[in-house]
Simulated scan of single mutants.
Amino acid sequence: MSGFAGFALDRAFGHPRGLLGALGGALMACGNAAAERQVVRLARLTGAEQVLVIGPGPGIGLLAAGERADRVVAIEPSQRMRHAAERRCAALRNVTVLDGTAEATGQPDASFDVVLSVNNIQLWPDRTAALAELRRVLRPGGVLLLSTHERWLPGGRAGLHADVRTAGFVEVQTWAWQPPSRGTTQAQTRATRP
């Protein structure tokens, strides 16, 4: 997408900032909450896991993960959303919010048990590089859980499934999930690092 529409979408959702970023953050907090909580449920966290959250936005899913995991690191490219996520999770000492992207997390090799991402895959400039990075930071046996608006997902569910397999993940499962509220259908994928 180019021109003003692309600029506005990036300012509201890709790298939220300014007035459009404030509006985008409010919409994300409301519209993504069900998918965020669903992905955390699917992770089946027991309290012992090290979790990486890619693009937590205003922190709804980050808070849910932080309440269930041993340690959670969030990687967020938007300063506005980092601050919002930090405020939402301020009472949790096990949550850290850092600047970065899915393609460049800045995290050590094999340092996480679970990686979660909700409604930002369509914004990754290089999905191949991002999936390689997420595989790198997962421990062997670690779980990748992705969820995104199906209608805005380049390549659709089949493309996401194929990309995750090509990145070297195994036990790849991809399905459609409809939020209980009026949210859009989500393409969700669960995979394991061998």
Rank of each mutant, 00 (worst) to 15 (best):
P108E: 00
A104Q: 08
Q122W: 11
A104R: 13
R136D: 01
L131F: 14
L98I: 06
V114H: 03
R139Q: 15
L116D: 00
T101R: 06
D99Y: 05
V115P: 06
G106M: 02
R135E: 09
T101I: 07
P125I: 09
E103T: 03
Q107A: 11
D126E: 09
V115Q: 08
D126T: 13
D99W: 05
R135K: 13
P108D: 02
R127T: 15
L116R: 09
A102N: 00
N119Q: 01
L98V: 08
L98W: 04
V114A: 13
I121K: 02
S117L: 04
T105Y: 01
W124G: 10
L98T: 08
L123S: 13
A130M: 01
P125C: 07
R135A: 10
R136M: 00
E133C: 07
P108Y: 02
V118F: 00
D113K: 07
V118S: 01
D109R: 13
V137I: 15
R136W: 04
T105H: 00
V115M: 07
A110P: 04
R139W: 03
N120F: 01
N120H: 06
D99N: 10
V114S: 10
W124K: 05
A110M: 05
A130W: 02
V137N: 04
G106H: 09
R136I: 08
T101H: 00
T128D: 05
R139K: 15
A102Y: 03
